[in-house]
């Protein structure tokens, strides 16, 4: 232990000085494992998150909406790929991350265990779920691990487009017919609380938070980020002339923030534990695509090997 002390001090000093840790730098094993957990979970969330919205590509209500949605889901695949690659710099393979996702050892954002039931859900997911994700990701642009921070800068640019497309869908629905307004309100009612849960447990109950803050893997606390999201979203909802499903939501002049009601943490843990509508479907979908594609990946590898051999012979 004492042998590592100077390295550990040096490492912490770098972090305190706002320098980035790069893949070849010395890092504590716990830092590495913590990052693998967080980054792979982030990558998995991008990939599993393709499913609830992907559910509406085939039946999007106009050609324009179809194209925009397909581009968005394609971006999520890109983010997943980018984040898996960034995580690989920590010495874990994509195959290993994949198998941990499929075995349940590794998590993804629990919000994707909720079903997307109507077209308005596509709007609500873009606006609220991506909106919540961005608040978190903007803060991660300053995370201490270089590849992760750089990935976040790039991903945030696209995510802000995603949020705008989600909000744009909501605006159109809110300006539309009675049925469209009802559809929009229903989606908000279902997605609002799960979006607040995305920031994770209260700071006092968050297992991984303190160490992560010290290492600057996390830059702002769960509760601070959640408050930021609530503050920005209330005004956006007012413009839509729709309502957030929280009777306790009101401006607090003293705090200069909105107060909001208590989250149903029992629901949060229930869904994580497997009691959401889609926990099984999401993994089944992922496994089935992966298994059906096995022969394609095998063939590509076999062809590459043959080609390399032929080159050697020649």
């Amino acid at each position: 232990m004492s042998d590592l002390a100077p390295e550990l001090d040096n490492f912490q000093q770098k972090i305190d000085d706002e320098q980035r840790i790069e893949p070849k730098d010395w890092m504590p094993e716990k830092y590495r494992l913590n990052l693998i957990r967080q980054m792979s979970q982030h990558a998995h969330s991008e990939v599993i998150g393709m499913q609830p919205e992907g559910n509406w590509i085939s039946s999007a209500p106009s050609l324009y909406r179809k194209i925009v949605l397909l581009s968005k889901v394609q971006d999520e695949a890109g983010h997943g790929l980018y984040l898996y690659s960034a995580t690989e710099t920590l010495g874990i393979s994509r195959a290993e991350m994949n198998s941990r996702l499929q075995s349940g050892e590794s998590k993804y954002a629990s919000i994707f265990n909720y079903p997307s039931l109507t077209w308005a859900d596509v709007g609500a997911i873009g606006w609220l779920v991506d909106g919540a994700a961005i608040v978190n990701q903007v803060s991660l642009q300053r995370t201490s691990y270089g590849p992760y921070a750089r990935a976040m800068i790039r991903i945030c640019k696209e995510e802000s487009f995603h949020q705008r497309q989600g909000y744009d869908i909501m605006v159109k629905l809110a300006e539309g017919s009675k049925e469209q307004r009802e559809m929009a309100q229903d989606a908000i009612n279902r997605w609002w609380w799960p979006s607040l849960m995305m920031f994770g447990p209260h700071d006092s109950d968050s297992v991984n938070s303190q160490q992560s803050m010290k290492w600057k893997i996390k830059r702002q606390s769960n509760d601070d980020l959640r408050q930021k999201f609530v503050d920005q979203t209330v005004q956006q909802t007012e413009i839509l002339k729709l309502e957030l499903p929280d009777p306790d939501l009101k401006w607090n002049e003293e705090r200069q923030h909105y107060d909001f009601g208590e989250i149903d943490w029992d629901e949060f843990y229930q869904v994580i534990k497997g009691n959401g509508h889609c926990n099984r479907d999401r993994i089944k979908h992922h496994v089935s695509a992966h298994e059906e594609g096995a022969w394609v990946r095998d063939a590509m590898t076999a062809y590459a090997e043959k080609k390399a051999q032929r080159k050697e012979v020649a």
């Binding site: 990939v47 889901v73 394609q74 695949a77 997943g80 790929l81 695509a289 059906e292 594609g293």
Partner: peptide, 22 residues
Amino acid sequence: ISEWTSNSPNLEEDIANSNVAL
């Protein structure tokens, strides 16, 4: 082609299929 989105053999192919569909 868009039916391959989130169903392709790997992420690289998924992205390519979405592109062609677009």
